[in-house]
Amino acid sequence: MLVDYLSKLFLQLVFYSKPNIEFSEEEIQEYESIISEPNSFLIRYNSRFPKYRFIQYLSLKENFILHGTNNKNIEEFEPRIQTLFNGKITEAVFASKDGIWPVFYAVLDRTKLEHSIRNGCVQIKTGPKFYFFSLSNDDLRKKPWTSGMIYLLPSDCFNKVSNGSIHFDEWICEKPVKPIAKLEVSPRDFYFWTKTTSHKENENIPTTIIKYKLRNLVGVKKSALIHSK
């Protein structure tokens, strides 16, 4: 218990926590109406509620799991060789039960990137989630953002990678998966778009983690000083 408490305290200090979103009955009814629209593989979102809230709602649905990508025309996902949070190599389709992390991958234009991407959705057991998003200094200057797609995949064929005390919200399926539906997103639908910071390419990962939130806060203060003049 003490370890979990200290871990939570550390993550609160260095990362941003998941927003606490509560859905009204009106909002739920509207979202369910959008989801249940017949023959709508491409979800046409015309709600007055922000799209990031809708994506959060989708992530809570038991039968959905989310995958974000720039590719807007995927008919079937094939397993690919990738590295898990724990460093293990696996050949699988990746997805997440989170409503923020996949949007990062959907709107990040990897064709503009030349260096490292450091990011994650970290969870303590079944408790709160924390996020960090950092690109190299050179890559962030390029403003590597684009529109992308969130794919809703069937959750019953996915298994969670880890249930350890501290883990990433990673889920994998080791066979091809056909999406149920898809939703187009833009950088503005990424909740932590303005909280993406940068690191030096030769910087070690622990330093990036420890300085992540601090760099964001310093950036906000600098912006405030500039605009106050």
Rank of each mutant, 00 (worst) to 15 (best):
E26V: 09
K72M: 01
I81M: 02
A95C: 03
R215D: 09
Q29G: 13
F77E: 05
G127T: 03
I28F: 08
K51N: 04
T194W: 00
K200Q: 10
R80M: 14
A181S: 11
I150A: 02
T196M: 06
R215S: 00
L153I: 03
A92F: 04
C121M: 04
K88A: 11
V93H: 05
W145I: 02
P144C: 09
D4A: 15
F64P: 00
E78H: 12
E22C: 00
I166N: 07
L11I: 05
T196A: 10
V122A: 08
F158D: 06
N163Y: 12
S198C: 07
H167R: 03
I89M: 15
F192G: 06
E26A: 14
I43Y: 01
K175N: 08
S134H: 01
S198I: 06
K195Q: 14
E32S: 00
F41T: 07
Y105P: 10
I28N: 08
R48Q: 00
H115T: 12
N86E: 09
S33P: 02
P206L: 04
P102V: 03
S24Q: 10
K213F: 04
I100G: 03
K51F: 07
I21D: 11
G127E: 06
L58S: 08
E27K: 06
R80S: 14
K175S: 09
E91Y: 07
K8Q: 14
N20V: 11
N39T: 07
N70V: 10
S24F: 08
L66V: 04
S223K: 10
D109Q: 05
F85S: 13
I226L: 15
K8C: 11
V107Q: 09
R118Q: 09
C121P: 03
P179R: 06
Y16R: 03
I180N: 01
K229E: 11
I65C: 05
V14S: 02
E37G: 00
P38K: 02
K72D: 00
P179T: 05
F94H: 13
G219V: 11
Y151A: 02
K221W: 12
K229W: 03
L214N: 10
F54H: 05
A181C: 08
S96M: 06
Q123W: 03
G219Y: 04
S47M: 05
T146K: 09
K97G: 10
K142Y: 01
F23W: 02
